[in-house]
Nucleic acid binder design. Structure first.
Length: 754
DNA sequence: CTCCACCATTTATAGACAGCATGTC
DNA sequence: CTATAAATGGTGGAG
């Protein structure tokens, strides 16, 4: 089908698509149109990665906008929201506007209510609905990207419930669900009352296979020689081979450490093939990486990148990841060793994909578990850059002959697993039941069950009573904690229940926080509040390593009085362990607020810069919720919680709270100013300019903007000379002067440390 | 006595959403 | 508890 034959779209869109080089629709796209996506028909498209799913969604949304309705695009990751939104912005010339809403980013300008197309994460959509966003009723079309993620135990239920809720609320809502190829696309279609496009078609050939011995065994039965040199790993041989064919390789491994280790070794392979120009360009990127953070992780990454290789995992700071992704797309970094972060994230295709590790450690299962077929296929799907590579190649690796056959059976010829709803579990239902009641969407138990009947779980289960019985357990829990009031058959959320629902925390987290906040007293320190939020189910716990048990048990008894709530018995294994893990997380937060630098924290807790930022972000969010709860319950600790929250937010000691609140002043600048004698905002406003300039290491522009932000009457710095007295002394020790050029941190000396 | 190659033992294990009110170096 | 790879530690032989 030609794009010019499309109807129902805003004027000029078909021609515009043609100008972009899209003349003919891909077969799955054409099928989607035949089934009515441009006429408001619901559709499930179960097709491989990179086979034009996005255009299907765009056509549906454009048609909806043309009908005068709004469209919503639900993404699985915040990082994808921006990517998708900028893709849709190319249609803004046809009079439609695009807005983004995620937890950390909200498009400015017009409010979402005025945007025709809105891009958001499923949690954000859920939250917006809970908070009563009125524009939801104007929706004509909702797109759910990567809908197979309803299978995810943690985040799947949110997507599932959100879709069910939108569909129940808006009559005749067009639902377009985009999915990877899954085992039961028909079931998804039946759940959503949708047409189905189920296709294996892809625009660029994908060859899959297994490397064993000295050869690559491909799915078409052919074998290609790919020799492994002595002392070289199979992966290294594959990377070398791809490089000789002028291609890049993406290697998937099962742990962060393996990713870093493999990158180090593969860097030696890539380095041999680099030209001088490339070395220069790579050295620049390596410097940018070092500038992001002073941690060992950052240094390891930089030194791999210098040699044309990189690793990618969640311990990296967001900026690190973006630099790696960009350098890989620019073909400067020629191989990336990644944990599954990269399989689901932004688009980073490669000529070849190597799935080195197809098993992953799972503590709950007690050992190594094979990856899902779906997951491996998602990784495979990163092979081949449309329009750039002649084909993509995805391979598994084995060193024993039986494994060769096994891997073909298990992953190459196998169909992906069916998607199964994970909704009927208490943690998932707790939050969604409360929200459903709080928004008035259900006012009786029957209402609630009626609503839940519209979920995928109901579609799939043959255990009729299961959902009802879990729901009853959850209602009892919500009742016991005062979030929901039951009056005969009627259900009503309490004031606190409403707040919990709007704050978007797990009711169990809220219950734990309320309990702790009530017990907080004069002995409670910030560490106590950090512990309180760290022990809720919304905080991802730090792992207790060998030796940590003793360390933190000792610390716990030392500081027990500072922590609100009562320590569980040392004999109740799980609970006590959790309490210790929370203490470890809390001390990380404390170190952060004591202005310890990232490098030391990373070293002390065995985490990467990305973990530190992630942890503090979560803690700040939860402390915000705790603050609101304390306020709602009229507790005395509100102030103390707010201070603890701000300290985590800024990463500073108490005396810097005021200064760090000034725009342009973070933990480092605040500390420098303080040491130069400028101790708070009002002093900064009236400060001697030479002192400020000296404290900010002679950076005029910085000094000017800081003074302006503080409200200084005349921030201009032209004729000012920095006061050397105010300059931060480079007093060796903690910052041993090794941070030249990038960003010396002038940390306060933090006293003795281990 | 030092160094190194090699083998046994120990150790640690993926990911990332949300409120609210404004801005890191 | 079902595994695996890297890091660490220990041993013995060569120089």
């Amino acid at each position: 089908m030609r794009v010019t034959e499309l109807t129902g779209l805003p004027d000029g869109v078909p021609e515009h698509l043609e100008d972009e080089g899209i003349e003919e629709l891909y077969p799955p796209q054409a099928e989607a149109v035949e089934r009515g996506v441009t006429e408001g028909e619901s559709l499930v498209a179960s097709v491989p990665t990179a086979s034009g799913k996005t255009l299907i969604a765009e056509l549906a949304m454009l048609a909806a906008v043309e009908r005068g309705e709004k469209a919503l695009y639900i993404v699985p990751l915040r990082a994808l929201a921006g990517e998708k939104a900028s893709a849709f912005e190319r249609f803004e010339r046809f009079g439609l506007s695009v807005g983004v809403s995620t937890g950390n980013y909200e498009s400015d300008g017009e409010r979402l209510a005025n945007n025709d197309v809105i891009v958001a994460t499923s949690e954000k959509v859920d939250s917006l609905v809970r908070n009563g966003a009125a524009w939801v009723d104007q929706l004509g079309c909702v797109v759910a990207d990567e809908v197979h993620l309803v299978d995810d135990a943690h985040r799947g239920p949110t997507l599932e419930v959100t879709l069910a809720k939108l569909r129940a609320r808006v009559d005749g809502l067009q639902t377009v669900a985009l999915s990877a190829t899954v085992g039961n696309a028909d079931e998804l279609a039946s759940w959503l009352d949708a047409e189905l496009v189920d296709s294996d078609w892809r625009p660029i050939e994908l060859r899959t296979g297994v490397h064993y011995g000295q050869a690559l065994h491909l799915d078409d039965g052919t074998t290609r020689e790919l020799p492994v040199e002595r002392g070289e790993s199979q992966t290294a041989a594959i990377v070398r081979d791809t490089l000789h064919d002028d291609g890049s390789t993406l290697v998937f491994v099962n742990s962060r450490r393996n990713a870093e280790g493999a990158a180090k070794r593969l860097a030696n392979v890539v380095a041999k093939e680099l030209g001088d120009d490339q070395r220069v360009a790579l050295a620049e990127i390596a410097e940018e990486i070092r500038a992001v953070s002073d941690t060992e992780t950052s240094e390891t990454l930089a030194s791999a990148v210098e040699r044309g290789a990189a690793f990618h995992h969640a311990g990296l700071a967001k900026e690190h990841r973006e630099l790696v992704e960009e350098a890989f797309r620019d073909r400067l970094v020629r191989t990336v060793c990644a944990t599954p972060t990269l399989a689901a994230g932004v688009n980073t295709p490669a000529r070849r994909v190597v799935v080195r590790d197809w098993q992953r450690y799972d503590g709950d299962a007690g050992g190594m578990q094979p990856l899902d077929v779906l997951e491996v296929h998602q990784m495979f799907g990163r092979a081949g850059r449309p329009g750039l590579d002649p084909y993509g190649e995805a391979v598994l690796v084995t060193d024993d002959h039986d494994g060769l056959e096994g891997l073909f059976e298990k992953y190459i010829y196998a169909d992906p697993e069916p998607v199964r709803s994970k909704l009927a579990a208490e943690p998932a239902l707790r939050t969604h039941v409360l929200a459903t009641v709080a928004t008035g969407f259900a006012t009786t138990r029957d209402d609630l069950l009626d609503f839940l009947d519209g979920t995928l779980y109901a579609e799939q289960t043959d255990e009729a009573g299961r959902l009802a019985s879990v729901t009853d357990d959850v209602l009892a829990y919500l009742d016991a904690n005062g979030f929901v009031e039951r009056d005969g058959d009627g259900l009503r959320a309490s004031e606190t229940g409403h707040l919990v629902s709007r704050l978007y925390v797990d009711p169990m987290s809220a219950a734990e926080m309320i309990h702790g906040l009530r017990e907080a007293d004069d002995d409670t320190t910030p560490l106590g509040f950090y512990h309180l939020v760290s022990r809720t189910p919304d905080m991802y716990e730090l792992y207790l390593r060998s030796g940590d048990r003793e360390t933190y048990t000792e610390l716990l008894y030392e500081r027990e009085a500072e922590i609100p709530g009562s320590t569980p018995s040392e004999f109740s294994e799980g609970e006590f362990e959790d309490w210790l893990a929370a203490l470890k997380t809390a001390t990380l937060m404390e170190d952060w607020t004591e202005e310890l630098d990232e490098e030391r924290i990373a070293e002390r807790y065995g985490v990467g810069p990305g973990d530190i930022r992630g942890k503090t972000e979560t803690a700040e969010w939860l402390l915000g919720a705790a603050e609101r709860l304390a306020g709602e319950l009229d507790l005395d600790c509100v102030r103390a919680v707010r201070d603890a929250r701000k300290r985590v937010d800024y990463g500073v000691r108490e005396e810097l709270l005021d200064l760090a609140g000034v725009r342009g002043v973070g933990r480092k600048r605040a500390r420098r100013l303080y040491r130069a004698g400028v101790e708070d905002r009002s002093e900064l406003r009236n400060a001697d300019k030479a002192t400020v300039l000296g404290a900010l290491r002679g950076r005029r522009k910085t000094a000017e903007s800081v003074l302006a932000a503080a409200g200084h009457p005349n921030p201009e710095m032209d004729a000012v000379t920095a006061d050397p007295e105010a300059a931060p002394e480079e007093n060796g020790g903690t910052n041993d002067g090794a941070t030249d050029g990038t960003d010396d941190d002038g940390q306060a000396s933090l006293g003795d440390f281990e």
